[in-house]
Design a binder for these strands. Structure first.
Length: 255
DNA sequence: ATGGCACCAAATTGGTGA
């Protein structure tokens, strides 16, 4: 099976591209979406189910919002991080084909002096402690989503430009390392990849054309899933669309 | 140093993202 993640930056705008992508990638069993930016009552449930998919979602208007679209039944859905009070809809967890999928939209943080940065670090702490118990209950677990963290300098097109800022700061990278310390493995780095592989490019300044991007969308796999993982790739094709999302899908292939 | 682009809600601009 293949599992995937994609920050679509408004599902209202991107739904046709999502359905088109799923049709073109018919071997993707489950796709986690971030930044749907839609309240639940206006979520395009009918369009997605009529296209033959199962779907679970937790939305809000304007900001955030997450969903899972799957070709197999979606079971045991959990919204947000249990035990962590959060007005923002950033996590949806469910089991598909026996795999526990945690779809996450980790906060951006804005800048190091912002309250949003403190929220990001507290949020990551809550995620890490909850995942400890979730992984014990579900050994086959994947954490997929927009992490808003570039884990290493090679994940940044121009580290000098980003140095000292949000997405690359030491506390954020330390949180990423704590996720790895739980036993989670960066699926992308299990395999040889071309240099300057990124998952996000700024809309401004022809960033995509110049490949001035960041790798901030990730699939982390538990040990049991890492053992089943045969490939992991970033699909830059949708970034070439008219009105693209600024993020592109990341896909992991499991036995 | 700043804005640049896109999206959204509300409004003819500002907040947020990364």
């Amino acid at each position: 099976m293949k599992i995937a993640t994609w920050n679509v930056n408004s599902l209202k705008v991107r739904l046709p591209q999502v359905l088109e992508w799923l049709a073109a990638n018919s071997d993707v069993t489950a796709l986690c979406l971030q930044e749907t930016k839609m309240d639940d009552p206006v979520f395009p449930l009918a369009e997605i189910t009529e296209a033959g998919f199962h779907v679970a979602f937790a939305g809000q208007k304007t900001y955030n919002g997450v969903a899972i679209i799957a070709r197999a039944p979606i079971e045991d859905v959990v919204i947000n991080i249990p035990g962590f009070e959060d007005a923002q809809k950033r996590v949806i967890t469910a089991t598909v084909n026996g795999v526990r999928l945690v779809g996450a939209y980790i906060p951006n943080g804005q800048d190091l002096e912002s309250d949003k940065y403190q929220y990001k670090l507290a949020w990551l702490n809550a995620l890490i402690s909850w995942l400890k118990t979730e992984m014990a209950a579900y050994p086959q677990l994947a954490l997929l989503g927009d992490y808003n963290i570039a884990p290493e300098d090679r994940d940044v097109h121009d580290i000098k430009k980003w140095q000292g800022g949000v997405l690359v700061s030491e506390p954020e990278r330390a949180a990423f390392e704590q996720l790895q310390a739980l036993g989670l493995v960066d699926a992308f780095r299990l395999f040889e990849q071309s240099e300057k592989s990124f998952s996000w490019w700024d809309y401004r300044g022809f960033s995509f054309k110049k490949n001035a991007g960041l790798r901030i969308d990730h699939i982390l796999l538990s040990q049991e899933l890492a053992a089943r993982c045969r490939a992991c790739s970033i699909d830059i094709e949708p970034r070439k669309n008219e009105r693209p999302s600024d993020h592109t899908p990341v896909i992991a292939t499991l036995d």
